[in-house]
Design a protein around this nucleic acid. Structure first.
Lengths: 152, 152
DNA sequence: TCCTATGGTGGGTGTCGACCCACTATCTGT
DNA sequence: ACAGATAGTGGGTCGACACCCACCATAGGA
């Protein structure tokens, strides 16, 4: 007899379903860890952007990460309050706010990265190292190097 | 120069991030299609469970799909209103409601399945058939045949 | 200098999914 | 027949997320 908890094969045959399901657990587990520090996913994304590409005007963070400007203001506000980024007016255009990663922010990002890898180990437990590599490769191709092209 | 829209490599190196991102687009695109018919993802899951395993008591649907009983009631109510399932009291235990797929429901599921595959073609466009197969295989392993074990 | 556009901020809205509680109907064991 | 468990339902809450608008400061061109 089939387990009364088995997922319907009709759904398991759909990559769409698997992606959304697995993606959801990955997302929520990571979000859980971050929330223990009072952070959300966007905070991490902003820190990563600053670490990888250097200081950004807030509008450039908006463009890069595809968030609403108003929401970005709130994220940056929170990160600044925690001492993880610095906000300075751009002297060349005093409308702009230059956001810079502080050493504390860099440290935080390192920790968050470790958290993310821990989550990864949980979620991808059934796969060996090689399989994980293949999976990451495929996901990267799907995602596209430029971020998901938004074609409505 | 690097595109001002490129996603931070720090994030692209994390399968956690990729999974959550790609999963989210898959999820929301499918949800969009379903919402055009006034349906949600759970509706499809319920139809699939009924098609694959035959009639269920509502409580068994709850156990199989891991939804809140109260929410399941609403989903089933909606499906019944649309004529896609039938609800009958179980004569052997009149507390139970037996949910059965109607022919209309089966037809609907077929259509929804086609929609899901269309979404799949959009999302997985960068991959060829073999790569898609590998991806599906890996996701299936990650998901586990019994559905994600929920270990809090 | 005035007009318009741009960058940023604060506040509010709508939706969504997950969850929880109170209540009714029914069953089961004593 | 009664007590306690179980199945389903209706109603409401909560947090996350995306989105939108009004507003202020500043810049840059006519």
């Amino acid at each position: 007899m089939v387990s009364a908890r088995a997922t319907p094969p009709s759904l398991l045959g759909l990559s769409t379903y698997l992606l959304s399901r697995v993606g959801k657990t990955a997302r929520s587990r990571l979000a859980l860890r971050l929330s223990e520090r009072g952070l959300r996913l966007w905070d991490m994304a902003v820190l990563a952007a600053l670490a990888d590409f250097g200081p950004h005007a807030q509008r450039d963070l908006v463009a890069r990460l595809g968030v609403d400007p108003s929401d970005m203001a709130k994220v940056v506000e929170q990160l600044a309050a925690g001492g993880h980024v610095e906000r300075d007016r751009d002297p060349e255009d005093r409308r702009r706010v230059l956001v810079t990663l502080t050493p504390a922010g860099r440290t935080l990002l390192t920790e968050l990265d470790a958290e993310a890898r821990a989550v990864q180990d949980e979620v991808l437990a059934p796969l060996d190292a090689e399989e994980r590599r293949v999976l990451r490769e495929l996901l990267l191709r799907v995602h596209g190097p430029e971020g998901a092209p938004y074609a409505p």
